[in-house]
Structures are given as C-alpha cells and as structure tokens.
C-alpha cells in the first residue's frame, strides 16, 4: 500500500456470488414489452465502476493522465472520455470528479492513482454500489428530460460532452449528453426505482422500450 494514510478496500468478490444492480428489482416489477416504434429507449448499464476523485486539479490531472491516459475535463460541467467511450471523467465541482469505468476496473484504478499521487492530499472514494448509469435515447428523449429536469437540455445549452448534477423530479441526477442521440443518467441506488418509474410514466405517451 503506497498511501498508508488511507484504507483501500476491494469490494468486488474473487468468486462469483450473485450480484444485482440497483435496477434489478425494478425491472422485475415493471417490465415493459419493447413497444414498436418507441419514442424513448431506456437501458441500464449495470455494475460499472464509479469512483469519486477529490483533490487539486493540477495534481489530479497529472495522475489521471498517467494512469488512465486521459485528462481531466478542463471546463466546469464537462465530461472527457477515452477513445472507446467506456471510460469517462466528469467535472462535478472545482475539486471533485466522477470517474466511470468498466465494472471491476475501479479497485485497480484507485490503487494506481494512490500510488501515483503519493502523499498529495486527495480523496478517492469507490461508490460503485451506490449508483448506476442509465441511458436514454430516442426521438422523444429530450422531451422526457424536459418533463423531468429543470436544467436546459436544448442542444445549444447542453451540447454533447456536457454533464451536470441537477434535480430529477424530486430526486437528483448526474446528467450527461453522451452523443447527439444518447443521454446518460447517473442515479443513486436508493432513488433508482423512483427514477425508473418516473421515466416510464413520463415516456408513456411516446412509447418506451426498456428491453
């Protein structure tokens, strides 16, 4: 352990015990048959690695460049991604970033970053069990978001590559515009069922496909 002052802990089992994403139960409760010509498509990208980085931007930028080969987003409310699009870093606050990586990579990432950062005053927190990522796509996705978040989701105000933390109905969401056709919503585990039900309800008039 390079940084004895903080405790690392790999929460992912070595074996294969049963694992359930935050939306597992909601899917079972509220199945929607893939509706034909659905205006909205909703998917969960379950069990990804979610890590919160806190610290100074310069030192942190250097570390993620070394470890992940990508830089911190330079501007507030923006997201950087690697070429595959599978790894992303989002600006949350001047000293906070959300990193999302393929599931299982989070502990290695934490360890490598701690080694690289040495004694720098930072905080690295694994929150993979506490949130999940949803994608929202389709012709009416933006309208569904307009019913849901007060933040301006017009392409002029919310271009591809932007990401914000904002209010989702009566819960909260980390909202990112991943591409011209796809939005990403990071929701907290305990609110996931509420958010899922809300999206089903708000999408009903357009038809929704949750697979």
């Amino acid at each position: 352990m390079s940084n004895v002052s903080a405790k690392e802990f790999n929460t992912v089992p070595a074996g294969n015990p049963a694992v359930e994403s935050p939306l597992h139960w909601s899917y079972q409760q509220q199945k929607t048959a893939g509706s034909v010509n659905a205006g909205v498509t909703l998917r969960e990208k379950p069990l990804l690695g979610h890590v919160v980085l806190r610290g100074g931007a310069i030192v942190m930028d250097e570390a993620v460049r070394q470890v992940m080969g990508m830089s911190l987003p330079a501007k507030p409310n923006s997201v950087t991604r690697d070429e595959t699009g599978e790894r992303s870093i989002q600006w949350i606050s001047p000293d906070e970033w959300l990193v999302i990586v393929p599931g299982g990579e989070e502990f290695g990432l934490e360890r490598s970053l701690r080694q690289t950062l040495g004694d720098a005053h930072v905080s690295i927190v694994n929150v993979s069990g506490g949130q999940t990522l949803l994608t929202l796509a389709g012709e009416n996705a933006r309208e569904v978001l307009m019913k849901t978040v007060s933040f301006d989701v017009h392409p002029l105000a919310f271009p591809v590559g932007k990401g914000v933390t904002t209010v989702f109905a009566k819960a909260t969401v980390v909202l990112r515009c991943a591409s011209e056709t796809e939005w990403e919503l990071v929701v907290r585990r305990s609110f996931a069922d509420y958010c899922y039900r809300w999206l089903l309800d708000a999408s009903k008039e357009y038809g929704i496909d949750t697979q």
């Binding site: 109905a169 009566k170 305990s190 609110f191 069922d193 309800d201």
Partner: peptide, 18 residues
C-alpha cells in the same frame, strides 16, 4: 402534474427491499 400516486414522493429502497 406527475407528482401524485406512486410518484408523489421518492420511495427510497435498500438493496434488500425485495
């Protein structure tokens, strides 16, 4: 609006709710 019935207020569940 939509803030009624099941969606009146968020219901938070633990991982063991099922």
């Amino acid at each position: 609006g939509r803030h009624c019935g099941e969606l009146f207020d968020p219901k938070r569940y633990t991982a063991l709710h099922q």
